[in-house]
Amino acid sequence: MERIPILKLHDLLLVTIQVDMHDRLAMTLQDDLMHQIRRTRARGVLIDISALDLVDSFIGRLIGEIASMARVMDAETVLVGMQPAVAITLVELGLSLGGVRTALNVERGMQLLREGSPEEEASGHASIDH
């Protein structure tokens, strides 16, 4: 069965979406991600959508759900690389993904996750390599 690959980078998971996903594929990705977070004890999830030329309300809602579910499992999600045309369209559609953190690219997204919140740093969880 067709699947979106999930890469593990140290304590982060990286998903690069490059195809126009049909709904079932997107839902499979959500399931897979949750299992991977549990299995790898990942602290953060990066979803790279720089290659996507469309995010509709279905995919938008799914991304929002991923972020909320991951948070419950103690992992932060950062959505990276949204194209301007996609961002304008999403806002016009009425979806602002308030609960999702964002970054310009994967590199900045990683930085954001590594910085973490002050509380995490204090408890020594923040990152493995500096």
Partner: peptide, 12 residues
């Protein structure tokens, strides 16, 4: 405000 929201979605 829409511009601000769109920029935020892009990570800015």
């Amino acid at each position: 405000l829409k511009t601000v929201a769109a920029a935020r979605l892009m990570g800015a």
